[in-house]
């Protein structure tokens, strides 16, 4: 036994030393993203003007909790551009403006651009208006604004129903459309006029998906810190 240990002592110590060195290197920061936030003391949280933080209070509470855990002040920025066009590039959301983006659907489209951290809230498409669906040939308002939802799938569904899509670009246009007796496809995050009924849509129109916080891909240390803080927050604020 002693002879066996003597024979292996040096290699075991060498390998142990190397493993300890590598394990210690894990604590080196991979980038400056978290250090920069700490230096500025602010976590900039961007949300769409229409589907804003007030419309999704749970997300806002989580974001506040995350910022508190990181010893940062949460700066909520409502951005009018979000959702204005099909292509998120037109929204001009840059690293310089936001550190974390809220109200994003956890979809492949969004994952292509950002690192997404699902936060336990859900987003789905609904039909706003009376319970009875409009007849074939009727116009159906479409006001999505929530980025990353499958518009191609929705378009196929609208075609299959025989409805003609009428894009609605602003909250005012949506309110006017609904006040005029029209019906519209909206996301569950959309603030609707009081007493407006909502009706679920079948899966063919679009699956219900998680909501996620979006972080800039490549921000390794900030993403890790926010992921850990979010996990702790979810212990207090369980998924819906």
């Amino acid at each position: 036994m002693t002879g066996g240990w003597k024979r292996w002592r040096r290699p075991v110590l060498d390998i142990g030393l190397i493993a300890a060195l590598l394990a210690a290197l894990n604590f080196l920061p991979s980038d400056n993203s978290l250090a920069d936030r700490r230096k500025q003391g602010v976590l900039r949280y961007c949300v769409s003007e229409s589907a804003n933080a007030l419309a999704e209070p749970r997300e806002l509470r989580l974001a506040e909790g995350i910022a508190r855990q990181l010893d940062l002040r949460l700066e909520v920025q409502t951005v009018a551009n979000i959702g204005r066009s099909f292509n998120p590039r037109d929204w001009n959301l840059s690293r310089g403006q936001c550190d974390m983006i809220g109200g994003l659907a956890n979809t492949e489209t969004n994952r292509n651009f950002l690192t997404l951290l699902p936060n336990g809230s859900r987003i789905a498409l609904v039909r706003a208006g009376p319970a009875e669906a409009p007849p074939r040939g009727a116009e159906m308002g479409v006001y999505l604004r929530a980025p990353g939802l499958d518009r191609v799938r929705l378009a196929s569904y609208l075609r299959a129903q025989g409805w003609r899509a009428q894009p609605l670009r602003t909250p005012e246009a949506l309110s006017g459309w609904l006040a005029g007796g029209g019906q519209a496809i909206v996301s569950t995050l959309t603030q609707l006029p009081p007493d407006t009924g909502t009706n679920p849509l079948p899966p063919e129109a679009g699956e219900s998906t998680d909501l996620a916080f979006g972080l800039w891909r490549g921000d390794v240390t900030l993403t890790r810190a926010i992921r850990n803080a979010l996990e702790r927050e979810l212990d207090h604020i369980p998924p819906e």
Binding site: D90, N92, G218
Partner: peptide, 29 residues
Amino acid sequence: LLILGVGLNPYFRGEVFGEVRLVLPYNYL
């Protein structure tokens, strides 16, 4: 990993929502 990966990671990171430099949903590291 520590030198090349960390050195090149900023060149593959996201800068504008809607634009990608690294076509995969992962960071360079």
